[in-house]
Structures are given as C-alpha cells and as structure tokens.
Design a protein around this nucleic acid. Structure first.
Ligand SMILES: NC(=O)c1ccc[n+]([C@@H]2O[C@H](COP(=O)([O-])OP(=O)(O)OC[C@H]3O[C@@H](n4cnc5c(N)ncnc54)[C@H](O)[C@@H]3O)[C@@H](O)[C@H]2O)c1
Ligand SMILES: NC(=O)c1ccc[n+]([C@@H]2O[C@H](COP(=O)([O-])OP(=O)(O)OC[C@H]3O[C@@H](n4cnc5c(N)ncnc54)[C@H](O)[C@@H]3O)[C@@H](O)[C@H]2O)c1
Lengths: 217, 217
DNA sequence: GATAACTTGTGAAGAAATTCACAAGTTCAT
DNA sequence: ATGAACTTGTGAATTTCTTCACAAGTTATC
C-alpha cells in the first residue's frame, strides 16, 4: 500500500461517488469553521455537521492520507487545503453554459460558482433571437461557434440547460468539441463515451423521491 | 414474506435511496416507450437505457411485487402504472416555492413539474419589493403569511430557493407550518426533525464531483 | 405437443460501503 | 513524570448493495 507524500495525493483504489460527495460537504463545513476562526476540528464535530459518523469521516479521509493529529483532531486550514487538492480545486475550471433559457440564465447570473473556482466563460444558444443578447455581462453566442471556440479556449465543463429533446445532440457536439465533463440539467439520460464525466441534476427525480418518502414514510 | 396484492404496494424492508432514484428513471423511460407505442419491454432493454443491468432492474422491482411475464417481459402500460403507484404519483402534490430570486423564479416558471403532478400553488419571498409581483401567474406572497396559508392549503412540499444564510430559519418555519418535505437548493446542510423528508440539489457539489473526476480520471 | 428461444423472479454469492473497536499517539493538569 | 481525557487511523466485522445463475414460466414455430 502506497503511503501519502506531501507532494501528491495517491489514489490507490477507485473512490466511490458517495465519498467524493462527502468530501465536498466536509470542505464546505471546514470553510465555515475557518471563517469563524476555529483552528482545529475533530472527526466527530465534522460528522455531526454532515449527518454522518466520525468513523465515516476518518475512513473517507484515510483513502488519501492521514491529515489529523491523534488526541487533537484536524487543522481546519490544513484539512481544507488537502480537500481542495484532492477535489482538484486548486486550479480554476473553465465552464460554458449551453441553453440561455430560464435555468441557463439563472446559472449564468449566479456568482456562487466562480467564487468556488468555476469560471463561466461563455453562454451558448441555438435561438437566433437570444444570440447577441447579454446575460450578466456575457454575450450569448451561437451554438454553431462552439466547436471553433473550444479549440481556442479549451473549456473544461459544459453545463447543459437545453430542452430534453435537444440534450443528446448538444452532448454529442460537446464531446466532439473535446470537452470532457458535462453537468446536465435536462431530464434525459445522456449516452456519452465513458471517458466523459457526466453528472445530472434532475429535479423531477428529487421531487419524486420526496413523493415516495411522503407516501411510504 | 408478504406477497403482493393488487390493492396495495407492500414494503417489507427499507428501500434504498438509490433504488428509488432508479425507479424514477425507469418510469421516465417507460413513458418514453409508451409514447412511441411500444407495448412490452424486457428488463434488459430497460437496463440498457438506464446504464444498469437487467438483474438490477428485476431486483429493484422485486421489492414491490412481480409485474412481469416470463418469456415476454413487462407491459409498458402496466409497469408505468405500478411505478407511479409505488412512487406516490397517483395523486397531485401541492408545492410551494420560497425565495423568488433567480432560481426560484426559474422553477416557478417551469411547467415540467406540474406536468408530473407537482403543482406549484404559491411563491413566497421576504423582500417587500418582490411581494405582490407576479411570477408566471402566481402573485408572490410575504413569507409571514406562510404559517397561516399552510393551515388552509396544507402544502406537501416546500422548495427552498433562498440564500444559504436564510435557509435554516426558513426551514424551521416550514417545519413549524406542518410541511413534511423540503427540496433545498441552498448550499447549506439543513437540520430538521427526522420525520421531515429532505432532498438537496447542490450544484456546486456536482461541479466539484466533475472537478474530482477530471483531476483523478 | 415438442422444441427452441426468451424472460422473469429470486436465492445465493460476491462486492462494496459502513460501522466497530481498539492500539497508538497527543495534550493538559497537577 | 504521571494519569486522565481526547482523538486518529485502520484492520476486522457487519451491513448493504449488486451481480450471478438458474429453475420456472411464456411464446412461437413446426
Ligand atoms: N427551469 C427550470 O426550473 C427547470 C427545472 C428542471 C429542469 N429543467 C430543465 O432544464 C432545461 C432548460 O429548461 P428551461 O426552463 O431553462 O427552458 P427554456 O426553454 O427557458 O430554455 C431552453 C433554452 O435552450 C435553447 N435551446 C433549444 N434548443 C437548443 C439547442 N439545440 N442548442 C442550444 N440551445 C438550445 C432555447 O433557445 C432556450 O433558450 C430543460 O431540459 C428543462 O427540462 C428546467
Ligand atoms: N441561481 C443559481 O443558479 C443557483 C445555483 C446554485 C445554487 N443556488 C442557490 O439557490 C439559492 C437562491 O439563489 P438565487 O440565485 O435565486 O438568489 P437570489 O438572490 O436571486 O434570490 C434569493 C431570493 O430569496 C429571497 N430571500 C432572502 N431571504 C429570504 C428569507 N429569509 N425568506 C424568504 N425569502 C428570502 C430574496 O428576496 C430573493 O428574492 C441560494 O442559496 C443559492 O446559493 C442558486
């Protein structure tokens, strides 16, 4: 088993999605603690905040190294730096939004993303009426420009906020343009090569989950 | 082990969240097949669509009964009816939106939810400048009215689209008003009684998941 | 009605994720 | 220095989830 060294984060086995989500949560809590001037934190306190257990917190972190001090806990500053490193948040990611409708516009105007290192560099739409208008300082570009633009700007992540019927063809174009990650808001299961990372935000599915919980609760 | 009867869906053990999400997916596919006039479908075809396996599909369904015909597969119409019953989608759910900002407004104007039986009956905001304006035919109401309104209208689900700092106090009010399910868009981990069903849509977390995938891919 | 080709439903096996439990290390007070 | 009070990191145990594999049932064809 490889040991952690300060210069890199070794990943010795596939990390579960649920683990990554929790790391993301922990980071948010740590930032909160940092803001409040708290210097160290125990796995127990971190767990209480996230609705999990201290063992889970320690196990999650143990995949990447050992960042704590026995008897004391974790340095808030150090652990959040580690998590940012693990999650790949030390760099800035270039994000484009495709579909300047209601959701796409709301996302483009939301500054919470760039605060976390996800910079929205362009907004695209297929509707000639929308192209040329501005959303939060970004001029909406025609989708036909995407392939060319991507060659120059090499965006990292495409956010899909187009109607479900258009989602697949847009995804195909995104993949063809060399973009390797997609955040999909359309209620359509995308078929993409497995080298492409896809996350879906499906609000109808969340509501149905609540419906199930209310019905069988 | 209890057996399935046509009048009710017996749940003999706790159903995993992941199972419910997949049921929701299957239902979407079935509706698609139904629209295209396909009468029967095999677990294999359903699985291919959802990126899972036929055994997984059959196991998911087996928690609730046996809905298929050996050698033939599932009746698309019957299985979607069953899934709607299981998910509690035979009735209409009353939904309120709290926070008429960018996201809240986009959600209020989105008709995809009511098409799936989630009827948005009211929008609330704390900002006096927003109160009284209309979003998609709904007049924005002052949040101070919520408790009273809820006594009459008994909404089922509250969608939280308020800033993170306000999320907890709004959630407390929602719970106090007798609403038993929350869909939270604010990047804040809500603390609520365990009788309350909560789902969170955390887009920053999804982006960080993509960042992780791109970094450690 | 016999055979071939399917497909379901489900125990059992296997894999994965979570929780337990404790040795080992740290801090603090006296 | 010593003891008490903490807390981490991690194998092992446990629980949960997924996949396997096959008996049993259905349909179609000849
Ligand atoms: N608005 C919501 O609250 C909400 C909620 C859940 C899911 N969604 C989903 O998000 C997606 C967008 O929803 P919306 O409400 O913003 O819709 P919308 O109609 O307001 O916006 C869609 C935009 O996409 C553009 N578009 C259409 N085809 C395109 C194409 N081929 N290439 C590029 N752009 C194209 C349209 O011109 C339009 O500007 C839909 O799939 C919807 O189901 C929206
Ligand atoms: N806009 C996005 O794309 C986006 C993306 C991810 C997450 N979010 C989250 O969604 C939430 C809303 O974001 P937004 O962009 O719509 O913000 P916004 O500022 O546009 O809207 C927030 C609304 O909430 C109202 N509000 C504030 N305090 C309130 C209270 N105590 N009770 C009732 N209403 C109150 C405000 O008056 C405003 O109308 C935030 O938590 C944000 O982090 C938004």
């Amino acid at each position: 088993m490889k040991k952690f060294t300060s210069s890199s984060i070794p990943i010795v086995k596939r990390i579960a999605d649920s683990t990554v989500r929790r790391l993301s949560l922990y980071l948010r809590f740590l930032e909160d603690f940092e803001k409040r001037g708290i210097a160290t934190i125990s796995s127990d306190e971190l767990a209480a905040r996230g609705g999990t257990t201290s063992a889970q917190v320690r196990k999650d972190l143990s995949f990447f190294g050992s960042f704590g001090k026995r008897g004391l806990g974790y340095s808030v500053a150090e652990l959040s730096a580690r998590l940012r490193q693990i999650l790949g948040l030390e760099r800035e990611w270039q994000v484009i939004i495709i579909g300047a409708g209601k959701i796409g516009a709301a996302l483009a105007q939301y500054h919470g993303f760039s605060q976390r290192g996800f910079r929205i560099i362009a907004v695209y739409d297929a509707d000639p009426d929308k192209v040329g208008r501005a959303v939060d300082g970004l001029v909406i570009r025609p989708l036909t420009d995407l392939a060319d633009d991507a060659k120059r700007q090499a965006p990292d992540i495409a956010v899909l906020a187009v109607p479900a019927v258009a989602a697949q063809e847009v995804a195909d174009l995104v993949v063809k343009s060399g973009i390797r990650a997609i955040l999909n808001f359309a209620p359509h299961q995308l078929q993409v090569p497995e080298t492409i990372a896809v996350k879906a935000v499906n609000m109808a599915m969340e509501l149905e989950g609540l419906s199930f919980a209310l019905t069988n609760g």
